[in-house]
Design a protein around this nucleic acid. Sequence first.
DNA 1: TCGTCTTACGTGTATATGCACCCAAATCAT
DNA 2: ATGATTTGGGTGCATATACACGTAAGACGA
Lengths: 137, 137
Amino acid sequence: MLSTACVCTKLRRSARAVTALYDDALAPIGMSTPQFALLRTLQRIGASPLSTLAAASGLDRTTLNRTLQPLETSKLICSRPGADQRVRIIELTGAGMSKLALGTPLWEQAQRRMVDTLGADRDQLFTILDRIEEIRA
Amino acid sequence: MLSTACVCTKLRRSARAVTALYDDALAPIGMSTPQFALLRTLQRIGASPLSTLAAASGLDRTTLNRTLQPLETSKLICSRPGADQRVRIIELTGAGMSKLALGTPLWEQAQRRMVDTLGADRDQLFTILDRIEEIRA
DNA sequence: TCGTCTTACGTGTATATGCACCCAAATCAT
DNA sequence: ATGATTTGGGTGCATATACACGTAAGACGA
């Protein structure tokens, strides 16, 4: 593989590699990393409007909507209108929580692999990535 | 946006942010960052079989095929069979080279923005990402 | 040389991602 | 109250990404 000086290409490439690792780990429960990450986020913030969940995830609202569709089809999440009839509340179902419980050790396996590989560089990496996430202004 | 301990989520998030920055910069020539990166790679390695270009780019062969389609439609690249009738040689067209010339200062603008933001951390970041790219083994 | 194995590709399918544009509900100013 | 504005969502479209599967051409051994 050619080396690149392009920060964007470099980051995209590494993200793909890491995604493949986590996807492999999650394969037994038939979920992708973005999907599983969504369940984890929902668990943390609880039932929330679509836009709130999107903001929490750092995803575009429309992207989130599309990502939710297969999860709603497989009943891992459900949605209902809020008091404000415009909002759509997204919520974890019982099946979703079970899936989370099943997937967590699988996710931890990939995560441990990364943490071990990164060692002490992990803090530095996260610090740099924090800065990078704020760039688009 | 919620913070996350997940290395995968973190990397994907930053990659999206940086991609948006480069995409904005490249908007005047109507190309995405992955597309432009492909032209740059082609320029570096010259006319090559699909699989060679895929390996150089660190992309799946089938992903590359799909990414090439709009570029071939807009005549920025062309393809022809090689001596070995199985291979498909991908090549930059004149229009492709012109587009590269037009886009390069735009790409440099985004790249400079990143380099300035990262400062001395850039080397460390690249070193860490190099290690990360080798993880899936 | 004739089958067999390998290699290079293409396509079907599915998810990930976000912009432009549209609709409906809530809010606000007059 | 009512018309204008803002806010929350959904969809069409396009690209990005890769796995599974199928096909054709080259390579190679018996």
